[in-house]
């Protein structure tokens, strides 16, 4: 049978999904054990025991100086910045996208501007943000907002243009004015797309967050990783990276569930 016609069974699919993870894990454990055997103080590939000790120290023991649980403090700070940035960017991107994609008179000036702005590398203007907004929370949130708003706006503008003109005309024959047409037709149709776009820009948002935290911060997941780098504390860095990955995956999953829950019509309407 040709390869293209062969698919795994249900159990086989699960096993195949786990396989690469198991291989990577085995590879890591083997190398880690090998290095630790040669030098018990090796820091590069810590064992699971060393990593769980580090997590125990950061997450479940109060810090000697401040009395905080650093792991949870970092997580809360980072999630707050990320959430604020994503929320502001979502609202701004939605407004810009709807205005530019629905109203030609607004699209004419907005559309080229958004396109050009989306080409500015956000990390290149990070110093400007620090100068303008200071080294506090605002500049970190602004980096996320500036980084992903143009992407969201461009995507939503495009989706708004893809709404069939027949629907816009139909709504006018049903007595809609421009405002109610946007409110009852364009916005509801773009909301599921906004959630999908948010999932797609989630990776960039994390990138901007960690970059900002690495440069100027006193807490946060990115801050901690770059702080302990000086001591080559891989036993802290690796659990932090795994935790960030888990958080990002969980947010992606929740947005996906939310889309299906709030907009049950969306799956069928695409057909």
């Amino acid at each position: 049978m040709r390869l293209i016609n062969r698919s795994p069974s249900r159990g086989g699919r699960l096993a195949l999904a786990i396989l690469p993870f198991a291989l990577l894990l085995a590879l890591y454990l083997a190398h880690s054990a090998q290095r630790l055997e040669l030098n018990p103080n090796d820091k590069l590939l810590p064992s699971f025991g060393q990593m769980s000790a580090a997590v125990e120290r950061l997450a479940f023991t109060p810090d000697e100086r401040s009395g905080d649980y650093l792991f949870w403090l970092d997580t809360a700070s980072s999630l707050k910045r990320l959430g604020t940035g994503l929320a502001i960017a979502a609202v701004a991107g939605l407004c810009l996208g709807v205005a530019a994609g629905t109203l030609p008179l607004f699209g004419a000036p907005l559309s080229p501007l958004i396109t050009v702005l989306s080409m500015v590398p956000p990390l290149a203007i990070l110093p400007i943000l620090f100068i303008v907004f200071g080294l506090g929370e605002l500049s970190k949130v602004m980096l996320i907002v500036i980084g992903i708003t143009p992407i969201l706006a461009r995507d939503l503008e495009q989706r708004a243009r893809e709404i069939p003109p027949e629907l816009l005309i139909k709504a006018q024959t049903l007595g809609a004015n421009t405002w109610t047409l946007i409110l009852r037709l364009v916005l509801p149709q773009l909301m599921p797309r906004l959630l999908i776009s948010l999932r797609l820009v989630m990776g960039s948002a994390w990138l901007f967050l960690i970059a900002a935290e690495a440069i100027a911060s006193t807490d946060g997941l990115g801050y901690r990783i770059f702080l302990v780098r000086r001591y080559m504390a891989m036993d802290v860095i690796l659990p932090y990276v795994a935790w960030i990955t888990l958080l990002a995956w969980a947010m992606d999953y929740l947005l996906w569930r939310l889309t299906r829950l709030l907009f049950p019509w969306h799956e069928g309407a695409k057909a």
Partner: peptide, 24 residues
Amino acid sequence: VFPHLSVLDNVALGLELPRAPFLG
């Protein structure tokens, strides 16, 4: 027809829009 509205809301929309210029 509007894909995001139920059958009933698709028809009721025509009664709502002219009477609700702000909320729709």
